[in-house]
Simulated scan of single mutants.
Amino acid sequence: MRHLKPMAAAIALCMAAGPAIGQARPEPELGYQLVEGQNINAFVRDGAVAAHLLLRSGNDPRILVAFPAGNSGVGLWFDTLAAPAQWALESAPQPIDVRDAHGRRLNGVRAVASLTAPRLALKQAVLSNVRFLRDYQAIGRFPPEVAVKAQIDGNRIVYARDRVDGAPGYRLELRVVEGRVNAGGIEAGAPSTRSRA
């Protein structure tokens, strides 16, 4: 089995839409990790950013980022794998800030992770309040008005939307630095010639 160290997906996770990933700040005020069973939990707090990154290993991998102060988050679920896969957090979450398409400031985190799987098929992204992320995990449903489609550009996968009331919303971006992105997901492979953000 090929490993997704050859698919080290640079996972850029931040709130709301915006054309680019922002610059990471110096070391955060608080940052730590905790592994519980198949979950890698990474916490970071610095200034306006307080986030919880969860990487779920196993046959049903997923990525979740919750921003508890705003009761908001982003999540990406992948299709069930034939064999369990293991996440590794290569670079701990770092606070970032970006501007969305309307020039509004967005706060978020950026991290780098890899997964030991030859291929990942995108199943569902949910960008909303934490309750809807929990609902999707528990019962597989969420309100249709918060649904968003993936935008694929080279080795980038982006999910973004404003809040339902039009306020700055959510953004989840993955940059695959080893492997490639196709219409259905991510395949392990040689390192990308693109630079890492």
Rank of each mutant, 00 (worst) to 15 (best):
A92H: 14
A92D: 12
A92M: 12
P93D: 11
P93Y: 13
Q94P: 01
P95R: 13
P95H: 09
P95E: 12
P95W: 08
I96Y: 08
I96C: 09
D97F: 07
V98M: 06
V98N: 12
V98D: 01
R99P: 00
R99G: 03
D100M: 03
D100C: 01
A101G: 10
A101N: 09
A101L: 10
G103W: 06
R104M: 04
R104I: 01
R105K: 15
R105N: 13
L106P: 00
N107M: 15
N107L: 13
N107W: 15
G108E: 06
G108R: 15
G108Y: 12
G108M: 11
G108F: 08
V109N: 14
R110G: 07
R110K: 15
A111Q: 11
A113R: 07
A113K: 10
L115A: 07
T116M: 06
T116L: 09
T116N: 13
R119G: 05
R119W: 06
L120N: 13
L120R: 15
A121E: 12
A121N: 15
A121V: 12
A121S: 14
L122P: 10
L122K: 14
Q124M: 05
Q124Y: 01
Q124L: 01
A125P: 09
A125F: 04
A125R: 14
A125V: 04
V126Y: 03
L127Y: 04
L127P: 04
S128W: 09
S128E: 06
N129M: 00
V130I: 14
V130G: 08
R131Q: 12
R131F: 11
R131Y: 11
F132P: 00
F132N: 09
F132G: 00
F132A: 03
L133A: 03
Y136C: 01
Q137N: 00
Q137S: 03
Q137V: 10
A138W: 07
I139N: 13
I139P: 04
G140H: 05
F142S: 01
F142M: 02
P143L: 02
P143K: 09
P144Q: 08
E145R: 09
E145G: 07
V146Y: 01
A147C: 03
A147E: 02
K149A: 15
A150H: 14
A150L: 07
Q151G: 03
Q151E: 13
Q151F: 09
Q151I: 05
I152K: 15
I152A: 08
I152R: 15
I152N: 08
